[in-house]
Amino acid sequence: MAVRTRGRDVSPGVEALLDARVVSVGVWLFLAADLFFFAGWWFAFFYLRALNNNQAWMIQGLVRPNRGFGTVVLILAVLTALAYFAASRTPGRGSVFRLLAPVSLVLGIAAVLYQGYGMWHLGFGLTDGAYPSVFSGLTGSWLVQLAGAVAWLATVVLQAGARGDTLARPHSATSFGWILLFLAAVGIINYFLLYFVA
């Protein structure tokens, strides 16, 4: 980040330590906020499922979304997060990062494209009751966030060069790993709710 305190009395080393703490705390705060976001969706899931108004939580003969499809997306998302997390232990430096970060990016793009494709081929209409509503809203919200995270991941990979930000602020790249892990964890919960519990 180009914003500095411009201290006349602050050494760059101390500045970097402080920046690391700021970014790390910021990421955890963001994850807390995002947890409440997905918790809102999970509440909607259980609430409408329990109410089953007009027997229309899942109308008779509803074609369920393909479970195999969901499994592939989930595996891609989890691998994205794990690959990046492993890479981000040595951000910018070392062969591990150079190898795994681009791999993670490719996996992430695949997850987004595959899930995006799936959203157009749900097998049911959005008007077909409450479960299709929750499925599309929850999966869509997750997809949008995953796409945003993958876009940021692209900047992290592109900035991994000699003069780049990833090298200058490795702690930022490290903290970002938690966001991908969080989204993967949410993906796992969603997967069980939408494909099994429902």
Partner: peptide, 12 residues
């Protein structure tokens, strides 16, 4: 046209 809040269609 989802039905999160339409009770006739499973919402509330």
């Amino acid at each position: 046209q989802t039905s999160f809040f339409l009770s006739a269609n499973g919402g509330s």
